[in-house]
C-alpha cells in the first residue's frame, strides 16, 4: 500500500518562529526551498525567492505528516496549491512580543481561512520573553472568534510545540464529530 501523506501548515508574519517550531519536532533537518521567479524578459536581474520550511514526522509505514512553514503572505500565492493538497489544518504563529506584527497576522489568518475552510489555531509564540503580550490580549488584538483556540507557545521547546499540534488535531476531530452529527440530523 502506498504511503499516505498529510500536511499541517505553519504560517505567520516574518520572524514569528515558524522555522523554529517545525525544527523542534521534525525528525529530519528542516529543509528550506528556494524558487526563482522570472518576470518580464527585461527584468532578468530581478529574482524573487520563495522559501518554504519543510519538516517531517513519520507515523508508521503508511502515514507521514509533513509540516510546512510559509514565508510572508505576499509570496504565498505561488505555493497555494502545494500547500492546500492534503492539508488538515493550519497554525498561525505570532511573536507575542511584537504587537506591530499582529495586524499582518490577522490578515494572513483571514486570507488562509478564506482559502481553506479547515480548522486552525493561533500560537502566541515567544511567551518566555519578558515583554510578551498575554494570550487573551492577543486574542482581542487579532479579533479572534471566541471558538478559535489561541495557545501560549515557546517554539524552542518540544513539549510546547507538541501541545500546539495536539490541540490542532483535537480541533480537527471535534470538527469531524460536528459534521457527523449534522449528517445524522439530515
Amino acid at each position: 500500500m502506498q504511503t499516505q501523506t498529510v500536511k499541517i501548515v505553519v504560517t505567520g508574519p516574518f520572524n514569528a518562529g515558524k522555522t523554529e517550531f517545525i525544527r523542534s519536532v521534525s525528525e529530519i533537518d528542516v529543509v528550506s526551498t528556494e524558487r526563482k521567479i522570472s518576470t518580464a524578459p527585461e527584468k532578468v536581474k530581478e529574482t524573487t525567492t520563495v522559501a518554504m520550511d519543510f519538516g517531517r514526522i513519520t507515523v508508521d509505514n503508511d502515514l507521514v505528516l509533513f509540516l510546512f512553514g510559509t514565508p510572508g503572505q505576499k509570496r504565498f500565492d505561488f505555493m497555494w496549491e502545494i500547500l492546500s493538497e492534503g492539508m488538515l489544518g493550519f497554525i498561525v504563529m505570532v511573536d507575542s512580543s511584537r504587537p506591530e506584527t499582529f495586524r499582518e497576522a490577522r490578515s494572513i489568518l483571514e486570507t488562509f481561512h478564506a482559502y481553506a475552510p479547515t480548522p486552525y489555531l493561533v500560537a502566541a509564540n515567544k511567551q518566555d520573553l519578558y515583554d510578551a503580550w498575554d494570550v487573551e490580549d492577543i486574542r482581542l488584538a487579532l479579533r479572534l472568534d471566541p471558538n478559535v483556540k489561541i495557545l501560549s507557545c515557546e517554539a524552542r521547546k518540544k513539549d510546547s510545540v507538541k501541545q500546539v499540534l495536539l490541540e490542532l488535531l483535537y480541533s480537527i476531530l471535534e470538527e469531524m464529530d460536528r459534521n457527523e452529527s449534522k449528517q445524522e440530523e439530515i
Partner: peptide
Amino acid sequence: LIKRLINRIR
C-alpha cells in the same frame, strides 16, 4: 488517521 497522528505526536 487523525487518532494515529495524535498518538504519534504524544
